[in-house]
Design a protein around this nucleic acid. Structure first.
Lengths: 175, 175
DNA sequence: ACCACCATGTAACAGGTTACATGATTAA
DNA sequence: TTAATCATGTAACCTGTTACATGGTGGT
């Protein structure tokens, strides 16, 4: 029985301590959210499978006022499986980009639509950049390790590269 | 009946003229391959669906020596559908990166494994960069439009950004 | 009164991958 | 003779998304 990437992502989050599905969904959004987004239902689907495979254990927690919940804890086996997976090489198949696909077929659309696409992408990149900068600022107070910093820095570099690219393309189209 | 991104990608390729499934698979590999890779079986699955929807027509071509083949041609309806889709805005949800996911959980792996990941990524980026540079050189002879140039230039910028990022991370880890 | 948050799940569906299956021709 | 190219498809499977379904608590 092998685990999916999402399952390993959940195991990774469980390393920080006991969590419910609901917690994971929230914690997941900020943090690994922009690296490996997972839908709520996917998280709930995955958790019992981890228990089944012996990678985690579940425990019911009774609450007053609030609904009862299932809380999951990673097992030794889970930690070991995570470590092994983490240390395995990744394969870098280029991720699909519907955006670049449209640009590629840019000759089949109106000039206005093409420009609009680039402008829109530029704005999206700007706003993501601002978002990442916000996170960066927060981090500087609390001190984060390189493992959190590095992906964030990629985010920053990536969005900046997109902005430069958009500007170049816009300049060329307008001349 | 709505089309998937792969179906639009195929329609886009069919704009250049009649093609068989086999042709598309090959043409697809170089060109849009690094922007929207499609497996052989996916192409063959998609083609009859395009015909069914009236976006393309199929015609059998008899060949001597070589096996007979189905050749597909885009219809007016197909061209129109493509144009409409192309001009629609894209949503930019951050693509999943198993690589960054592993980096994020870098504290759970050995230092050596971590360094190996970064070095490996750097090499992959270098070799992709070389590949893109090769394509760029070819292009300069034949003259390509901005629509082909722009995605390629993104590829170049992207790989260069990765290399810089890897170097930064390696420097930090080693100190 | 209404909305957001807590909390968990199921079912249907979409999109895609991998492996399986076949078989002639041609160049090294 | 071995492998690559031409040529097409099916079937099983995996992963993930969206919509559906429920219901109490607490703030504005």
């Amino acid at each position: 029985m092998s685990l999916s990437t999402t399952e390993f992502a959940v195991l990774g989050l469980l390393c920080a301590g006991e969590r419910s599905g609901y917690d994971l969904k929230k914690v997941g959004e900020k943090g690994i959210g922009y690296v490996w987004p997972a839908s709520k239902s996917q998280v709930y689907t995955v958790l019992p499978r981890l228990v089944e495979g012996g990678y985690a254990t579940a425990r019911e927690v009774r609450q007053e006022r609030l609904p009862d919940k299932q809380v999951y804890r990673i097992t030794n086996r889970g930690e070991e499986a995570l470590r092994v997976w983490l240390e395995e090489p990744v394969d870098y198949h280029s991720p699909r980009s519907p955006f670049l696909l449209k640009i590629f077929f840019g000759s089949k659309m109106s000039r206005e639509a093409f420009v609009a696409h680039i402008e829109c992408k530029r704005e999206a990149a700007s706003s993501d950049l601002a978002l990442f900068r916000g996170i960066e600022a927060e981090i500087e107070e609390s001190d984060w390790s390189i493992f959190r910093h590095a992906p964030l820095r990629w985010g920053l570099a990536h969005e900046r590269a997109w902005i430069r690219w958009c500007d170049q393309v816009l300049a060329e189209v307008r001349e």
